[in-house]
Structure formats: C-alpha cells, structure tokens
Amino acid sequence: MSKVEKSLHKDSPSNIPVHVAIIMDGNGRWAQKRKLPRLFGHKEGAKTVERVLEIAIKRGIRYLTLYAFSTENWKRPKEEVEGLFSLLKNYLTKKSGDLQQNDIRLRFAGRIESLPEDVRMAMVKVQKETSNCKTLDLILCINYGGRQEIIDAARKLLDIYSSNIDEIDEVSFRSCLYLPDVPDPDLIIRTSGEMRLSNFLLWQSSYSELFFTETLWPDFSEKDFDEALESYAKRQRRYGAV
C-alpha cells in the first residue's frame, strides 16, 4: 500500500469517497496548445479514462461517473461530434473484455434514445456483458444534462402520481432519476481550471464536495487524482448540520 493509500485509509473507511464523479474538461485546449485537431485531444482523453479506472479500483472507489457528452455538446462542429461517437463506439467494441476482466460494470445515464443507432447497440451490448461485474460501476453520462434529467423525472412522476401529488417526496423523485440506485457523488472533480458544474448531476450534487484543478483532462495523472482524494479526506461533511 502506497503512502497516499495509507493516508487515505488512516482514520476510517469514510475517508475514501464511495462515489467520485468527474467533469472531464480540457481535451480541446490540450490539442490546440499543440496545434493539433481537437479530436486528438479527445483520443488522449480516452487514454486518461483507462488510467483513472485503474487508480479508482486501487483506491477502493465503488462508483465512478464521467461526464462524457452533454446535451449542449451537440452544438459543437459536426465533424467533432461524429468523431466523439466514433471514439466511443470504438472504445466499447474493443474494451468490453478488459472491463469484464477487471470486474467493471459499465452503465449509462442520459437521453440514450437520441444517440445514433450503431452507438446505442454497442452500448447495450457492453452494458449486458458487464452486468454481473461488482468491483466498480463505471457510469458514462452521454447526451446528459442535469436539468433534462430533472424534467424527465418530473414527467415520470406525473404519470405515476397524477391522482395524488401529495405522495411526491425526495424518495419518489429519486426513484425516477436515470440511475436511482446509484448513491449521490461524494466528490466531484473538474479539470482544466473551470469552476462550475455545467449542468452535471444537479439533483445529486446537493451535498457533494467539489474539487477543481488547472490540469487539462489528458494530463490528469495519479498524482492529480490523489490530490483530490486527499483534499476530500480532510473535509468534514456536515450535510447542513452545525
């Protein structure tokens, strides 16, 4: 066990976040700094995902949620959007075996029905193939928006409780979210120096701890991840109590 791992585990298991969510920002700027097409940054960012998965398992994290493609990302150039989905399909096709070998369950959150059919089919296939894995749940938020998730949940609630809206509470609302069984993120990390949530997990982030780093996502390293985990371990979470 490394010094960092010993430090994180020192006082109690609660020092380790159960659920870490990451806003993976900076792929485009990473490429532009090197005078490369933006898609090169996304390819490097995909390599970082693999690195972060290994670290998350080593550190004992149970859920890892990655903001992969937002509902607003459709506004990007068509070539970039198509390239992103090609990368995703490629990843799903090639990495299913690795995910199973490492006991990683792959799940998705977002308006999946609006994605290209070939991408959807690849997603469904890998999700099924990894459904019995239990070490880590990897959740990719694709065509995802926090406001959109709340709207979709509200529509479900209206269908279920249209005759008795007094029964609607936080528990019933949560049951209508995309992945209601997944606990709220303990820690949300955003790379690239931006300091906002950008429509990410708005309902679930009510009491999440936030960590911002200047590091661009393709450069995000084990040291950066451990810095975020160490910062989290030093905080006292009160959930509104004194």
Rank of each mutant, 00 (worst) to 15 (best):
F212A: 08
T213H: 11
T135W: 06
L87R: 03
P116G: 07
Y63S: 00
R155M: 09
G146H: 03
Y232A: 00
E80A: 05
E194M: 05
T135A: 13
K43G: 01
A153S: 09
R155I: 10
R59Q: 13
S86Q: 15
I160C: 01
V124S: 10
K156G: 12
P116T: 05
R34W: 07
F40H: 13
K43N: 08
W203K: 05
S231P: 07
F220N: 07
S14R: 11
K125N: 13
E129I: 10
L87N: 03
A109W: 04
V81L: 06
R107G: 08
P218C: 00
F225Q: 11
A153G: 06
P37Q: 02
F220I: 09
I189L: 02
Q100A: 04
L179K: 12
I61R: 01
G240L: 03
S86F: 15
I112L: 11
V126D: 00
L201S: 01
F225I: 09
T130Q: 09
V124C: 06
W217V: 02
A122H: 04
E72V: 09
M195R: 12
K35V: 08
E149N: 12
D159E: 15
N199K: 02
T130D: 12
V18A: 10
N199D: 10
S2N: 13
W30M: 06
S206T: 14
F200H: 00
K43M: 11
S86L: 13
